[in-house]
């Protein structure tokens, strides 16, 4: 790992000031709030924490809802992400740049606006309202609306992760597979997917974390109905508004623990990604001078 700056021994007061500033910022903005969530959640002992989570039917339902909405949104994103990344990384067509820019819309638009847009389309007074009423389908204030909103806000995560990786890998292996007689599915399952698996997993982990934590868009489309359309973040907010801070913090601590798990998964996957890109560089290295000798 030579990609670090050389460090000169001995510190000046400015160095000390900058380091202190950086540590203080991270501590104040990240470590202390996270720690306080857990402290508050367990302030009345683990028993109370467990009861707050497991014995309140509305909280239980919120956890259950989050655990069903997020995977569906993530699954959709996975399929969309692979298809879109493949299109963008492997083909040149008019409007390609615009398409890539569109992938970022969910990041640049406020989630509340996204939620409202969904209401305008799928709500009772919305464009598709009469059609949905005729079909006796409910989207807004119901599970499908939650999935739509969550999918929307997490849309860029998988595709954004895959495009640079697929571009770096290049089409040669896929072309080689085709010239050896593989059909489209065989190329995808045997060559493309194994090559992008770690990047894909990385995207999925990030999308899942975002899906679990999404608040704004879901808030608008859910109608905030306890025991029906409240997801975990919505439940945290509702409990907090009802002055049930310890219960609120207990649910929040579950979300925070999830974030920590995500963090660990992310680090593990990123290590694999780095190893893969080293492999790629080794295999691509023109006139590899340091030929590993067969032993």
């Amino acid at each position: 790992m030579a990609n670090t700056l050389p460090t000169k021994p001995g510190r000046t007061p400015l160095d000390a000031l900058l380091v202190t500033g950086a540590v203080a910022t991270i501590g104040l903005l990240i470590v202390v709030p996270l720690a306080s969530v857990f402290a508050e959640a367990f302030s009345q002992g683990p028993q109370a924490w467990w009861e707050a989570i497991a014995h309140d039917p509305d909280t239980r339902h919120a956890i259950w809802l989050s655990l069903t909405v997020a995977p569906v949104a993530v699954a959709f994103n996975t399929v969309f992400g692979i298809a879109a990344a493949w299109l963008v990384a492997r083909f040149r067509f008019p409007g390609r740049t615009l398409l890539v820019a569109l992938f970022d819309v969910p990041f640049s638009v406020s989630p509340v606006v996204a939620g409202l847009a969904l209401v305008l389309i799928f709500g009772r007074q919305g464009i598709l309202g009469p059609t949905l009423a005729w079909l006796a389908m409910k989207v807004i204030f119901a599970w499908p609306g939650l999935v739509l909103a969550t999918t929307f806000v997490t849309l860029p995560l998988v595709v954004r992760e895959l495009i640079p990786v697929m571009e770096a890998i290049g089409p040669e292996e896929e072309l080689a597979a085709v010239s050896l007689g593989a059909n489209g599915w065989q190329v995808f399952w045997r060559v493309t997917l194994p090559n992008i698996r770690w990047a894909l997993l990385h995207g999925i982990v990030l999308a899942n974390a975002r899906a679990m934590g999404e608040f704004g868009a879901v808030y608008v489309v859910s109608g905030h109905i306890a025991g029906a359309t409240d997801t975990m973040p919505l439940r945290v907010e509702k409990l907090f508004q009802e002055y049930r801070t310890p219960a609120s913090m207990a649910v929040a601590s579950v979300l925070a623990a999830l974030a920590l798990v995500t963090l660990v998964a992310k680090v593990v996957i990123e290590r694999r990604l780095e190893a893969e890109s080293r492999d790629l560089a080794a295999v691509r290295n023109v006139a590899a001078k340091s030929d590993p000798s067969p032993s």
Binding site: E173, L175, A176, V178, S179, G181, N183, P194, D279, V283
Partner: peptide, 21 residues
């Protein structure tokens, strides 16, 4: 005729070996 059915052996410039295999 699609490349898949040409039955032509192709050796790529940087070999394009399947890295994970």
């Amino acid at each position: 005729r699609h490349a898949r059915h040409r039955e032509v052996g192709f050796v790529f410039q940087h070999y394009a070996l399947f890295r994970h295999m």
